[in-house]
Design a binder for these strands. Sequence first.
DNA 1: CCGTATCCCGGAGGATACTG
DNA 2: CAGTATCCTCCGGGATACGG
Lengths: 97, 97
Amino acid sequence: MERTLKVLDGKWTTLIVRELLSGPKRFGDLRAAMGSPSAKTLTDRLRALEHQRILTRTVYAEVPPRVVYQLTEEGESLSDVLDAMLRWGEAHPLTED
Amino acid sequence: MERTLKVLDGKWTTLIVRELLSGPKRFGDLRAAMGSPSAKTLTDRLRALEHQRILTRTVYAEVPPRVVYQLTEEGESLSDVLDAMLRWGEAHPLTED
DNA sequence: CCGTATCCCGGAGGATACTG
DNA sequence: CAGTATCCTCCGGGATACGG
């Protein structure tokens, strides 16, 4: 439980994993798909997830550079948790704020 | 998804729900069971969850006062999400920090 | 016992400018 | 394109003191 909370920490982390569940993505595409968080924030979260072996970062030595993020097996396995969150959210819509 | 993230926001929220899944609890017992967060913090989180109809707050007009927190049906239904988190955490223990 | 009232701090996250 | 480097703001959360 502790571990799960630590991995899914931060406002953006869950969103990153969700986006990557549909396949590897480049930095820019990922950013756009999430509503454009600041580059700094996204980089910070990606580095943290990389360090925790939730995803991998691959740099292609091209010009212009291309960097692709992809979930590891461990990262993919988070889909169970995200699915549970998604189901709960759908079953209990916001009544007010 | 959004909704779930908003409800489970904050460092302590998930812990509160987990404690209450085993039955209604008084303020003091709840606090002790979670490793004694500050009274202010616990109160803030409890109020937020109450406002979101995740739990109810019942005050017994006694001396000394007794206040009991209990999950609503909506709150109980979060067990699916917490279970998924627990299972993932157990299946993927911390290798390093 | 169960809070409220203050004051305070760290760190997530944003804005902007710059670089390989 | 995919970042770094700075600077700044906001607020969750802790510490302490007091109140019904």
